[in-house]
């Protein structure tokens, strides 16, 4: 099952990138995510590993994931090492001056194929899709707030200097 959501953010890709690759920020904007813990020596970049959990229905599902693609500031992808089979991707693309199209993709398959697995994937999909959508809305709010704050600070500094 593949679910995805996208959103336009009024900020340059570099700023959005700083948010989506910072593991300490994940719990602040990722809806439904209850754990995003660094379990490798490096906290980001190729090979970084995280223990992740997302509440879906009556369980927190996820597992150990590893970053397998890290193309700053455009693409970051991870894949599961243990737990539910999953592959996720942050895809950032410039969409005009100081605007970024952000896409969050997650493909997952539950173990134990067959009818139960198929039903489970489809029953869980609306929850997962809703979590991705809410995550992007919150990401946009936080990134644009950060950008507005930075611009206000710059204006204040400029006013002081003059």
């Amino acid at each position: 099952m593949r679910v995805a959501a996208q959103i336009d953010v009024a900020a340059p890709p570099e700023l959005v990138w700083a948010f989506v690759t910072d593991p300490t920020r994940m719990l602040h904007f990722m809806a439904g995510v209850t754990r995003w813990e660094v379990v490798s020596a490096r906290d980001r970049g190729l090979g970084a590993r995280y223990r992740t959990l997302m509440r879906v229905g009556s369980a927190e599902v996820g597992g150990l994931v590893e970053t397998v693609e890290y193309d700053e500031p455009w693409d970051m992808a991870w894949t599961s090492v243990t737990g539910i089979d999953q592959r996720g991707r942050w895809r950032l693309r410039a969409n005009g001056p100081n605007r970024t199209r952000v896409e969050l993709r997650l493909s997952y398959s539950v173990p134990g194929s067959g009818i139960a697995g198929w039903i489970t994937e489809h029953v869980a999909a609306p929850t997962v899709r809703g979590n991705l959508r809410r995550s992007l809305l919150e990401l946009r709010r936080q990134v644009e707030h950060e950008r507005a704050r930075a611009r206000a600070a710059a204006r204040r500094r400029a006013a002081h200097a003059s």
């Binding site: 229905g57 369980a59 139960a116 039903i119």
Partner: peptide, 12 residues
């Protein structure tokens, strides 16, 4: 691991 989907459906 393979039975978790069935348990999840029942539990959820």
């Amino acid at each position: 691991r393979e039975s978790l989907p069935r348990l999840w459906l029942l539990a959820s």
